[in-house]
Design a protein around this nucleic acid. Structure first.
Length: 333
DNA sequence: CGCTTTTGACCCGCGC
DNA sequence: GCGCGGGTCAAAAGCG
């Protein structure tokens, strides 16, 4: 881990990496002590969940951030660059609410192309990706392996576009936040320039290809950066209960049924729902900070103090959604 | 016993 | 072509 200077840069939200990536903006939120009862959690699907649910864990986190990274238009490849350059090291400097400053490096590395490495194992699931080849390597059979490799290289399989990703930061003592879904960890890697590792999780539901990465910000160890990729194709596990599950499931459901503009990436996360509505340019625009407490939420626009607004928080995060939407629209004006 | 986590090896794209 | 770094695989270990 040496540091690449880039890691410490402030990334211009509008900057696009050569690969086409956008730097993602992050929206910091603060204190929902409400549910915060848990140290945990929440992370995942964004805000929505965050807002309410979480339930299970009892600790509290004082603030969380949420952001969307990317959508590339080109979906594509973008992310894959793992290389050193750009992608992974993106770091975002986010405004902070109160005094905590949050910044993260999320690397968005994304590199996942789906197919890449073959997936053999779980195979079942994805049909799609198909491409996979198995990890030949692992085996020792050289022959096949090599042939397989050739195959791959020769045919360029088109990689299927990567699922939209959604990242957000959460102040939490625990890395893995409860979000209502069941996940299985399938890998962990050291993060460049960070003492904290990044963990990779996959949704355990069959045929669901949603993945998520969890890592702790090296700049602010109290912050956990969670990146979701893909959309769940199933309801929340019934085991999770309660309102949480119910709400989430409900929400999720409706989202799936109503995806208006496919072209724009509708990530699976509730939050993304409203994010999608925002014009890119503005959305990427500077850092917006949202401060939410159990009873109210505020959106701070660093460059426009006057836009600061407060709203009552409802049990239903829909309100938050509205708040965010209107806030962004205002900013636009 | 079944599922999850751990963990080292491997794959792959990219820059040099 | 090589090395780097992110992401994934899968055998082994751990856990309830």
């Amino acid at each position: 881990m040496s540091g690449d200077p880039r890691d410490f840069y402030y990334h211009d939200p509008t900057y696009r990496y050569p690969n086409g990536h956008y730097d993602a903006p992050l929206l910091p939120f603060s204190s929902f002590t409400d549910f915060l009862q848990g140290p945990t959690t929440f992370d995942y699907n964004p805000l929505a969940r965050a807002f309410d649910f979480s339930a299970s864990s009892p600790e509290a986190f004082s603030s969380f951030n949420c952001g969307i990274p990317i959508y590339g238009e080109g979906v594509d490849e973008g992310f894959s660059s793992n290389g050193d350059d750009g992608c992974n090291n993106n770091s975002y400097q986010v405004n902070t609410v109160g005094n905590s400053s949050i910044s993260s490096s999320s690397g968005e590395a994304g590199a996942e192309e789906d197919s890449s490495k073959g997936k053999k194992g779980e195979a079942g699931a994805e049909e799609d990706s198909g491409k996979g080849k198995k990890g030949a390597a692992q085996g020792e059979d050289g022959g096949e392996t090599s042939s397989q490799k050739q195959d791959k290289s020769k045919k360029k399989v088109e990689k299927r576009p990567r699922e939209p990703r959604f990242a957000f930061m959460t102040k939490s003592e625990v890395d893995h936040l409860e979000d209502g879904y069941r996940w299985r960890k399938y890998g962990q890697k050291a993060v460049k320039n960070s003492p904290y590792p990044r963990s990779y999780y996959r949704c355990t539901t069959q045929k669901c290809v949603v993945k998520k990465r969890v890592e702790r910000s090296f700049q602010d160890p109290s912050v956990v950066i969670t990146t979701y990729e893909g959309q769940h194709n199933h309801p929340l596990p019934s085991t999770l209960r309660g309102s949480v599950a119910g709400m989430l499931a409900h929400h999720h459901h409706s989202m799936m049924l109503s995806q208006p503009q496919p072209s724009i990436l509708p990530p699976s996360f509730p939050t993304s729902e409203f994010m999608i509505q925002l014009p890119h340019s503005h959305f990427m625009n500077d850092n917006q900070v949202i401060d939410a407490t159990a009873t109210s939420a505020s959106l701070y626009l660093p460059n426009s103090p006057s836009l600061h607004q407060q709203h009552q928080l409802h049990p239903d995060y829909g309100l938050l959604q509205d708040m965010l939407t209107s806030a962004f629209l205002k900013q636009e004006l």
